[in-house]
């Protein structure tokens, strides 16, 4: 198991308003797996991702990441862990507007080892090429489309060869063809061995993942084993239909 979360609780608000967004959820993610989390708005999908990656502190329960209990780690340890072993893709590209695209990709790697700039840049260019946007490397982030920027974000997340790539609605702000391309890229990354956990409300995105977790009222209400997706469009249609049927069954 790369991630083992047991009975996690996370509350927001103060006083009478305080309520548990996560209310005893338990999740296990295996190494090399491609998992998605679905659920209605406000069900705590993003919060689940933030707590599993140590970006949000828990109010109860336990998260083991690669065997390390996140609640015992300091802020600095968590920062180091994110830099070394995790990659993130958010709904918005969250790139630094001061830096050009290449600099955005190499940012975190430069933090640890700027002596080896050439090999860092080499790796970044390889990733940008794989993402099909190598020609954008020298551009400002204002000179690229939303879909392109999202691919930049994915390249940035892959720079340190993370143990887990987290995605919080990575296609949420994109049109359907751009979203399609992103999902194809993620699938390819997964095939190369990276563990991916996505949060999504989009059935088309979830249908491409191996396993779908359904979050309701802060707990995992069920999970759907979809198996490996091979990439054919008829297969995808079939997976979507099966997933839809399951979701309807459990009351989505």
């Amino acid at each position: 198991m790369i991630i083992t979360a047991t009975g996690i609780v996370k509350a927001f608000g103060a006083g009478d308003e305080r309520r548990n967004v996560l209310d005893g959820a338990s999740v296990e993610i295996r190494e090399g797996e491609f998992v998605s989390v679905m659920g209605p708005s406000g069900s705590g999908k993003s919060t689940l991702m933030f707590t599993l990656s140590g970006m949000d502190r828990l109010d109860g329960g336990q998260v083991l990441f690669d065997g390390r209990d996140l609640s015992t780690l300091s802020e600095n340890d968590l920062a180091d862990l994110r830099r070394a072993d995790m990659g993130f893709v958010f709904q918005q590209p969250t790139l630094l507007s001061n830096l050009n695209i290449l600099d955005n990709v190499i940012l975190a790697s430069m933090h640890d080892n700027r002596r080896d700039v050439d090999s860092i840049k080499q790796r970044a260019m390889t990733l940008l090429e794989r993402a099909g946007i190598a020609e954008l490397a020298d551009r400002d982030i204002t000179q690229a489309s939303g879909g392109q920027l999202q691919r930049v974000g994915i390249c940035r997340a892959l720079m340190n060869d993370p143990k887990v790539l987290f995605g919080d609605e990575p296609t949420g702000a994109l049109n359907s063809s751009a979203a399609d391309e992103i999902m194809r890229l993620l699938a390819e990354i997964h095939r190369n061995g990276t563990t991916i956990m996505l949060v999504t409300h989009d059935i088309k995105v979830a249908a491409r993942t191996q396993r779908v977790l359904f979050l309701l009222d802060g707990k995992i209400a069920g999970e759907f084993e979809a198996g490996e997706y091979r990439g054919a469009s008829e297969e995808l249609k079939d997976r979507e239909e099966r997933l839809m049927a399951w979701l309807t069954e459990i009351g989505f």
């Binding site: 802020e75 600095n76 920062a79 969250t94 975190a108 940035r156």
Partner: peptide, 16 residues
């Protein structure tokens, strides 16, 4: 604050 949060997510420490 958005850039700060982004850098934190990328693994920059507060001191950085």
């Amino acid at each position: 604050r958005h850039s700060i949060a982004t850098m934190k997510a990328l693994g920059f420490r507060n001191a950085d």
